[in-house]
Design a protein around this nucleic acid. Structure first.
Lengths: 115, 115
DNA sequence: ACCACCCATACCCATATGGGTATATCTTGC
DNA sequence: GCAAGATATACCCATATGGGTATGGGTGGT
């Protein structure tokens, strides 16, 4: 089974170091596959495979430019992760963080109109 | 190789759905293994294995109570993930951020009595 | 048309992994 | 001390996965 039911979501995608590096590289600017492969120091096929995973979970988008495939970050896909993590911020022990998440909660409330 | 070099970090730990469920369950209260196993609907050994992973990356702590092992959330371990994700917030469609600053403006106005 | 280049896919391999069953260890209750 | 309960581990299996090497399909330049 290994990672039951092919869990292909953002959580799984960012579990891989190289994929995280790719996403980080893409924050600077969009890049063609070859570029990424060089930066990662791995083969083009290997890179393509990681890109495929990222594509499938919607973390990157592709644009064809001549014979190149230019990949760009689609950070929206990280939302689920950020939201999930957000649910734990209040459990961090750091005083500063407590205050921080408290403030964030207040803001969230107001954005929801709860005031 | 599969997930090269045994990447055992928080990112990897939360890539598994059941483990995320465990962490979520632990936000409510600490729980002994049996409890978790029942909640997850899986065997005790299976649950223990997930708990081991979570333990090794510091996402949970254990306390012995008689013949039980009570697991508790240690959210600090999620910090790295939160920080990494944080680096991408500015690339999300600005909608959220815009709203955020808008709210902040409103707050400022009200505090000043501008209403 | 031909060739060089950029990629995605198909395969192949070795290992990591999730889940289950059997079992050893330790603790509490008699 | 002994039986029962709670766990962690050892093992076994099937599959997912990361990485590499071939290879096929487009695209641009000449």
């Amino acid at each position: 089974m290994a990672r039951a039911a092919t869990t292909s979501d953002a959580f799984n995608a960012i579990a891989e170091p190289q994929r995280r590096r790719i996403l980080t590289l893409l924050t600077e600017r969009e890049r063609p596959v070859g570029d990424l492969a060089r930066e990662l120091g791995m083969t083009q096929p290997g890179t393509s495979k990681h890109l495929r995973v990222l594509r499938e979970v919607g973390l990157v988008s592709v644009r064809e430019s001549g014979r190149e495939r230019v990949y760009a970050l689609d950070a929206e896909g990280l939302r689920p992760v950020q939201e999930w993590i957000g649910g734990f911020e209040r459990y961090w022990n750091d005083t500063f963080e407590r205050l921080n998440s408290y403030v964030r909660e207040l803001q969230a409330d107001e954005e929801r109109g709860d005031a």
